[in-house]
Design a protein around this nucleic acid. Sequence first.
DNA 1: TAGATTGTTAATCGATTAACAATC
DNA 2: TAGATTGTTAATCGATTAACAATC
Lengths: 297, 297
Amino acid sequence: MVAERGRRNGAQAAHKRGRGVTRDAPDADNAPTAEMPAVDAGNGAAGEGDAVRAKAIPEAAVARLAVYLRVLSGMADQGATTVSSEELSAVAGVNSAKLRKDLSYLGSYGTRGVGYEVTVLVGQIERTLGLTRKHKVAVVGIGNLGHALANYGGFPGRGFPVEALFDVDPDLVGVPVGGLPVSHLDDIPAVCTERQISIGVIATPPTAAQSVCDRLVAGGVQCILNFAPVVLQVPEHVEVRKVDLAVELQILSFHVARRADIAEAAASAQAAANGSSSDSRVPMTKLGLGNGLVERS
Amino acid sequence: MVAERGRRNGAQAAHKRGRGVTRDAPDADNAPTAEMPAVDAGNGAAGEGDAVRAKAIPEAAVARLAVYLRVLSGMADQGATTVSSEELSAVAGVNSAKLRKDLSYLGSYGTRGVGYEVTVLVGQIERTLGLTRKHKVAVVGIGNLGHALANYGGFPGRGFPVEALFDVDPDLVGVPVGGLPVSHLDDIPAVCTERQISIGVIATPPTAAQSVCDRLVAGGVQCILNFAPVVLQVPEHVEVRKVDLAVELQILSFHVARRADIAEAAASAQAAANGSSSDSRVPMTKLGLGNGLVERS
DNA sequence: TAGATTGTTAATCGATTAACAATC
DNA sequence: TAGATTGTTAATCGATTAACAATC
């Protein structure tokens, strides 16, 4: 029942990620100090210039940087040359202070009284996100979703070329999908090593996911994007992101239900206000909605 | 450049969500104490079955509840009847205190010294997530991804039946996909209203997304799951979740890059330690991490 | 200089988690 | 009773954001 030793629990990392920074080394968590500090401490206080970037950009900020990048690219396409934090934050849908703080992780590329140069910002974000190099992708599980992913035009720019496809189905092996022939699951380690795949996308049924994950790791894959509804166990050095459709839908379901509850409460509160007082024991207090909540929307 | 009035910015909400709770009732937040304690103190264990749920479950906790539910269902299938927070948290990959706190939002369904009854927990989580009712889903954009989603077996259980499909392509309209005929984008409001769709899934190209979103909202859809890489503007009462493949990949890219930097830094620290000091000038500037002091424009 | 906007500080708010009293 | 485990408290940690000095 307990996670295997020597493996890191993907979900845990993911959850921690929510809270924090640079969560890849959960151990390094309370003592992140294990190896990094050695490096940092290496050049002591002087060490500004160093791999400071690597230090600590919160995961949430990284995700937002990717959004800013997209917005900025759009602006650049429309000929914008300069943008203020106020403008950019409005379009990206974040607080402008948060935006400036996020951008400050990149360094100091704005001009007071003026704003940011769009192209400079684009370049810096790309650099920080490591988009100046290519990351080869393998898609495992060529079902509906895998098929879609293999053909996906959405892999941003040409920075994430799909260079390997895998499936168990012998009928699929050898068949080209999106111009690339499908290989067998058994060949994952060899093919990934050979083609220098750095990102593995798992689009298999849940039962196969862990085994596929293990083979990807054996093939030297550094990061995994997991669409299978399972909590993957991976070694320390492997980063997992999870996209879970079921969870997304269930979160939405929760909100629908919550809203229904609120409406119901409002209705019975209304009823109560309309006269009969015998039911006063029920709704308001129970729901803990005492405040302006009701009339808000 | 600024978000339209009367609309809420999806991304902003999403980001806030990361930080927070039930943002809709910010008031009830700091003073839940005002009324609740009275109630709770009053009957302690009583009044559970109720809409207490509406109070304040952090979004992050909701997402985890969905994960617990999946794990518990698996355990139930394997015949488990009871589970401790320690076991469940290990499998779900979270801290056990966090798990207990999350479960405490449901009410008090454990037995000290024993643990939780699996079936009870499953039932309570389902109730809280609103899974006791059906949520009809519409998929808009029947391209690769939409196709996959329309056929997706992954929509959990039968709680999220796909009951409408839409696309702009006249050649697709009328064609059944996964047994359901595709309707035209223009019919979104009418069809959604008629079929009582509560969740809209947007799988269109980014340019079409906002307009599709507006029509879904016009059709009375309460929640949107957005796969298009755009920040959607929606009215207050509509909940948006976003799944952004590009952002996921870019986050992974960041981690690959960071790791490379760390390795490099470690290497040069090593080199430095080994004697020669002349190379200390290289990596720092090269990485452009000098706080931008030098090359400020 | 006057106006604008950045970059940063510090206050605030929320989420995580160790620890433990309650209690089965 | 002794052992186990929950539910909750309080300390801690991190993320958000208003506000403002720096400065273009």
